[in-house]
Amino acid sequence: MSAWGLGRRTAVRAEPVERAPAVAVSQVSKVYPGGVRALDNVSLTVWPGTFVAVMGPSGSGKSTMMHCAAGLDSPTSGSVRIDGREIAGLDETCRTELRRDRVGFVFQAYNLIPSLTLEDNITLPLRLAGRSPDRQWMHALVERVGISGCLGRRPAELSGGQQQRAAVVRALVAKPAVVFADEPTGALDLHSAHQILQLLRGLVEEFHQTVVMVTHDPAAAAWAHHAVVMADGKVIDALEAPTAARLADRLIALGGR
C-alpha cells in the first residue's frame, strides 16, 4: 500500500505552499440517474510539472474522474480546482472558457479536421477563441515533437504517430495549466505508442508541463512519474516511479477481488 495512504488526499510531488496545484480534486462523488455511483469521495492533487497516470479496470471510474477533473462533466458533490480556480459550480459557458484557456486534451482519436493543414489544425482552437498563437512557442513545440516539416500537409498524408504528435502540440499551444490524455496511444502501433509516451514524458521534464493520462495499459502508465490506481469509483493505491510489472500485478489482484 502506498505511503500516501487511503482516506487522505492523494498528492503528487511536494511543491512550495505558494504554488497552486495544477489540478485539485477534493472529495468528489458522481452519481448518475438510477443511483449508479461512478465516483465515491475521490481526492487527488496533481502539482505542476508532473506526469500522472490514472489506471484501473473497466468500470473503475477513471474516465469519469478525468471528465470531472477536466470540467467535461460536473460532479454530484465535492470540489474541483484547475490552476487554483474552482470549477465544480460553474455553468457550462464558464466551464467551456476555462477549458479553452487552461486545459489541453489529447484523445485516442486524433480529432484533426481532414480538410485543414496540420498548422491550421494546431492553431484552430486559438483562432476560434479570437487569439493569436505564440509563434515562438508553437515552433518550439513543433520542433520538439519532430513535425516541423509537416505543417503544410493534411492529416491523411501523415502516419498515425505524426497525427497524434500534432494533437499533442494542439493541446499545448495555448500554454494550459494541465493536459488530460485519454488513452492517447490506443490507436497506435507499438513503435508509435512508445514515441508518444516518450514525448509526453519529455515535454513534462523539459517544458515543465503537467500531464494526467488515463490508460488501461501498465506499460503506458510506467512512463509516468506517478500512477494512481482506481477501483469501484475510489482511489485505492498510488505508486511513485511505477513499473509495468508492479502495475500489472496490481490490476491482476483487482481482478480477483
Rank of each mutant, 00 (worst) to 15 (best):
Val214Leu: 11
Asp182Gln: 02
Ile196Asp: 05
Val179Gln: 13
Val169Trp: 07
His208Leu: 11
Arg201Asn: 11
Ala187Lys: 05
Ala187Pro: 00
Phe180Met: 00
Thr215Glu: 02
Val169Ala: 06
Glu183Ser: 08
Lys175Thr: 13
Leu197Thr: 05
Thr185Lys: 02
Thr185Cys: 01
Val214Trp: 08
Val211Ser: 03
Ala171Lys: 12
Leu172Pro: 07
Pro176His: 10
Ile196His: 00
Leu197Asp: 03
Gly186Arg: 01
Leu197Cys: 06
Pro184Leu: 12
Pro184Asn: 10
Leu197Trp: 00
Ala177Ile: 11
Leu190Arg: 15
Val212Ala: 06
Ser192Met: 06
Val173Ile: 15
Gln198Ala: 14
Lys175Gln: 15
Lys175Leu: 12
Gln209Tyr: 04
Phe207Trp: 14
Val204Asn: 04
Gln198Pro: 00
Leu203Arg: 04
Gln195Ile: 05
Thr210Glu: 09
Leu188Met: 10
Thr210Ile: 10
Val212Met: 06
Gln209Ala: 14
Ser192Gln: 12
Val211Ala: 03
His216Val: 05
Asp182Lys: 03
Gly202Val: 02
Leu197Ser: 02
Leu203Cys: 12
Ser192Val: 11
Val179Cys: 12
His208Arg: 15
Leu197Glu: 02
Val179Pro: 06
Val178Tyr: 09
Arg201Val: 07
Glu206Met: 06
Asp182Gly: 08
Ile196Gly: 02
Leu200Thr: 13
Thr215Tyr: 03
His194Asp: 15
Asp217Lys: 01
Asp182Pro: 03
Met213Lys: 08
Glu206Phe: 01
Pro176Asn: 07
Leu199Tyr: 02
Arg201Ser: 15
Arg201Gly: 14
Ala177Pro: 08
Ala174Val: 07
Gly186Ile: 01
Pro176Cys: 10
His191Asp: 15
Glu183Ala: 06
Glu206His: 08
Ser192Ile: 08
Gln198Asn: 14
Val214Pro: 03
Leu188Gly: 06
Leu190Cys: 08
Leu190Phe: 12
Val214Tyr: 07
Val204Tyr: 04
Ala177Glu: 09
Thr210Leu: 08
Ala171Ile: 13
Asp217Glu: 11
Ala187Asp: 05
Lys175Cys: 11
Leu197Gln: 00
Glu183Pro: 09
Val173Glu: 13
Ser192His: 13
Glu205Tyr: 09
Glu205Ser: 15
Pro218Asp: 10
Val179Gly: 11
Lys175Asn: 14
Val178Asp: 07
Thr215Phe: 02
Val178Met: 09
Ala193Lys: 00
Leu203His: 04
Leu203Pro: 12
Pro184Ile: 07
Ala187Glu: 09
Leu200Ala: 11
Phe180Asp: 05
Gly202Trp: 07
Val211Gln: 01
Gly186Glu: 03
Phe180Glu: 04
Leu203Met: 10
Ile196Ala: 03
Ala193Thr: 03
Ala177Phe: 05
Ala181Leu: 04
Pro176Tyr: 10
